[in-house]
């Protein structure tokens, strides 16, 4: 499971990479694997205002539709139009060519609510443990 060291993460498996005041947002390798082959990305409109952890957009696979939440508050300033024509980019290059939106961050302090790469790695490990321990009723 690939994790990029200098990115920040959410427990919903989004990543954000921050440069100056702009956050580039995408979904993690774990998320794209869990979703399976992505068939559609419903991009938000440019200029959309979002709050941290509010629903930002949704992605579809054949048998599921999943909401993607914004890791930061701010205004959407750019969306990755390439995903409209070829959503498989999200599966193949989730951390670079598969970026989804860029957001002009309105509250830099909120990044303290996000996980570092190490914290996210530990979080995934804990999920894995729970998953193995889970069993069917009865």
């Amino acid at each position: 499971m690939e994790i990029i060291e200098h990115f920040l993460y959410t427990k919903e498996h989004e990543w954000v990479s921050i440069e100056d005041n702009t956050g580039t947002v995408g979904i993690t390798d774990y998320a794209q694997q869990a979703l399976g082959d992505i068939t559609y990305v419903e991009l938000p409109g440019v200029d959309k205002d979002v709050e941290q952890f509010e629903q930002l957009l949704s992605v579809e696979s054949v048998k599921s539709a999943s909401d993607i939440f914004s890791p930061v508050s701010g205004k959407v300033i750019e969306v990755n139009e390439d995903l409209v024509d070829d959503p498989s980019i999200l599966n193949r290059y989730c951390y670079d060519k598969g970026w989804i939106v860029r957001i002009e961050i309105s509250d830099a302090d909120e990044t303290s609510n996000l996980l570092t790469a190490d914290e996210y790695r530990n979080y995934l490990a804990s999920l894995d443990r729970n998953d193995n321990g889970e069993s069917l009723e009865e």
Binding site: T39, Y40, E60, S61, V62, K63, S64, A65
Partner: peptide
Amino acid sequence: LQAREQHIRREK
């Protein structure tokens, strides 16, 4: 395009 439909999205 079943991801639009009720058996997947339910109330959405």
